[in-house]
Design a protein around this nucleic acid. Structure first.
Length: 189
DNA sequence: TGTCCGATATCCT
DNA sequence: GGATATCGGACAT
């Protein structure tokens, strides 16, 4: 079992966003473990990034955790319904993070249902909510990331425009969404 | 493929 | 107090 350590997250955000593809998100609920392979991510790189909650150097109660050292969870409610799971990256005081947009879940049944093919859906599946705000992925006993030796070649990584951030003007078309080519569990191609 | 809209914490004026 | 948001399911077209 190779849990990703803090050093993995405290690196340039675009690098982390790409390298998260193929890693496994592990969620432990009581004695049960839910596992999903990360197949889609998006980078948010403030304070320049207009699409980031930390745009312009804003420090609000909601987004203050993205200013912390890499490796923590940034989670918030969107549209009044959906929780969004982000992983804080980069060193302390740099407001950068990666949104986890889709997982390929293990197990036949889940596969058929595409139960985690979207940022809101995966949080619902893994039962993630406000109580995970600030959770330390390097230490937590209920959520962490593992490297299971899956290698994603550079040629298999597609870069695309981020989703749902039209309000961010020119920043909306930066190619900061990454997903695994031909993977059926990506939220949108 | 497109349009509609839920349901609410958080941010801003 | 008002506007808005890193979506997703439903139903029409």
């Amino acid at each position: 079992m190779k849990r990703l350590k803090r050093s993995f997250f405290v690196r340039p955000t675009l690098k982390v966003a790409r390298e998260l593809l193929g890693k496994f998100l592990v969620r432990k609920i009581k004695k049960e473990k839910l596992l999903g392979k990360i197949v889609e991510t998006e980078a948010y790189i403030g304070p320049e990034d207009k699409a980031s909650h930390a745009s312009g150097g804003r420090i609000t109660k909601r987004c203050q955790i993205v200013y912390s050292n890499g490796g923590r969870v940034y989670i918030y409610l969107c549209y009044g319904i959906h929780w969004m799971l982000n992983i804080v990256t980069a060193p302390k005081d740099k407001p950068e993070c990666v949104l986890i947009r889709a997982l390929e879940s293990l197990g036949k049944e889940e596969k058929l249902k595409k139960i985690a093919s979207g940022p809101g859906k995966l949080c619902n599946w893994l039962n993630l909510d406000k109580s995970f705000y600030g959770e330390d992925l390097a230490k937590s006993k209920r959520i962490w990331l593992e490297d299971k030796g899956v290698k994603i070649k550079k040629s298999q990584i597609i870069s695309a425009e981020r989703i749902g951030i039209d309000y961010a003007g020119a920043w909306a078309n930066r190619l900061w969404r990454f997903y695994i080519k031909d993977n059926n569990f990506v939220s949108r191609k």
